[in-house]
Amino acid sequence: MATISSAPPSLDGYQLRLPTFEGPLDVLLRLIERDQLSISDISLLAVFDQFIEYVNALESSTPEFVAEFVTVAGRLSVLKSRALLPRPVKTVDEPDEIDLVRQLEEYRAVKVAAALLASRQQAGAGAFGRGEGIASPLVESARFPPQPPSALTTAVSRWLTRLPLKPVLVPAFRVVSLREMVGRITSALTLDRQTSFDDIRGACAGRQETAVAFLAVLTLMRRRLIDVTQNELFGPITLSRSRVAFDSRSESSPWDSPQTNGRKQAD
């Protein structure tokens, strides 16, 4: 048994792939038809060995599946034993078991009938009553009626109204703008001729504002509106009005026309 089990279920080149064939009778029928025999006890005996060999090769299949083959194999064995041994006298009460030959003939008829149905199916035959197609669950699941895009927004808003409305508090920091900071520095320098960066920084709320203040200083410096001095590394930074800027346009914000201003200074 174990020697054949590795081989795929095949019948001398007559391939019977497991998913496509329909059980032990199918196999028997194909064996007989392959040898062009008529269905009879004799032809069943002729294919006996091949059938048993085929069943042996089925070891890897599920027990339920193999069981169906073993049943037929058993009936074949009875047939063979009868052919080899003298038949005992039949007891009267014993019901006649279903003759394998007759069953095979019938099975062939079923296969023919199935082929007939298959050909009708292939031809796409079909009659339809009223209301069919509309009420068919197949159609309903396969096709949705076309929806306008507004249906989606309607659905979302309907969903939103069902949500519990709890106000969400998000901490928001007021961010000072560069323009604002420049204004703050220039006004400080309008009052005094000079001021220290530490004073400006002291008025800032948080690191971000300090960064903006530093940017503002750099901007003013670049525009040559202020002079900046620092005597030592990490020492205090002193901001003072530059002569050019604050002499001529002391009251107006130097930010108003930075481009022209800058260019004028660059000349």
């Binding site: 329909e22 079923v110 199935a114 149905l117 298959a118 197609g133 068919s136």
Partner: peptide, 19 residues
């Protein structure tokens, strides 16, 4: 009727149905 999906039966189902 827009019945574009035809349901095909397997060999086993056809045999049983024929029977």
């Amino acid at each position: 009727l827009r019945l574009d999906r035809e349901v095909r039966l397997s060999g086993a189902a056809l045999e049983t149905l024929a029977l």
